[in-house]
Design a protein around this nucleic acid. Sequence first.
DNA 1: CTTGATAATGGAAACCATTTTCAATAGGAG
DNA 2: CTCCTATTGAAAATGGTTTCCATTATCAAG
Lengths: 156, 156
Amino acid sequence: MPRGNGTGPPWWHGRFRGGGYRMTIPRETIVNVLSKTSKHLSAEDVYMAVHKIHSNIGLTTVYRTLELLVQMGLVFKFDFGDGRARYELSEGPKGERHHHHLVCTSCGRVIDYTDFIDEEIELLNQTEKGLSKKYNFNITSHLIQFYGQCNGCNLK
Amino acid sequence: MPRGNGTGPPWWHGRFRGGGYRMTIPRETIVNVLSKTSKHLSAEDVYMAVHKIHSNIGLTTVYRTLELLVQMGLVFKFDFGDGRARYELSEGPKGERHHHHLVCTSCGRVIDYTDFIDEEIELLNQTEKGLSKKYNFNITSHLIQFYGQCNGCNLK
DNA sequence: CTTGATAATGGAAACCATTTTCAATAGGAG
DNA sequence: CTCCTATTGAAAATGGTTTCCATTATCAAG
């Protein structure tokens, strides 16, 4: 039970220290905000949430930290086509968050789904293996999204 | 053999007329540029290519036309993470172009691959069917990309 | 518990891809 | 050929993201 017992530093501290990065209040706050939601937050969303906790944290720092988290592999960055990037914690220590997205091209709604994930993941692993070998490419992640009209939009 | 015999209007004219859109020189030129390359062109790339043919066509029109083509389903719009959108003709009348992408997160290189496409497509079709039913979602397209370090970048 | 090197921060300004505005132009039905 | 109106192009506006740089805070060493 590596998480949630309230003692010791949060699990992600090691990831920062191990990467040679300092632990700061903005970074701590930003990861906390991300870890407490399952929504697809934009940089500004994160900024607003973080601002409620420490009103002195700037938008620039939010952008910088999110970018750092993406590079560290702690966060995924998505583009749902509305002109702003969205960020999600890639997964907790248990890997309980992995999902793909359904994006409505009419209203912009995004649905997370985990159905069929197992079959997809299995095929993806095979594909990744084949592609890695053929193109000598070190694959670290994948992106799968489906586009179309959602429930509310396809009735008219 | 619906294409390449040099007689009659290009095959995409019908798509415009059918949608209630006029055929204009800028639109004709832009589709032509896209149909003659297998690269991932940005709006500016398209603009420059188009500009060589008709120097009076403006960047605004390029953006507008590309957006229209995306809505018509003739063009796919991609985000490879470099801050500008990329456009590709979705496919010729024979469907000979479908492929997915490998994106290098170090240098930005993008490799098209068609290997394993058949298995992927089959799984995708099943998944689409399941998702459509479960979420009452009308799926029209999908996006699959793998990320990692390419040949040149993973040797350090 | 200090100190000091330097990583990190934040506010303002810069950047730059994309969109909007609007008067001029051109497609194509009748 | 004419007219209606979709389309265009140049310039200006927009807005998400980055850069600049002086100030502040982290944390290893003493």
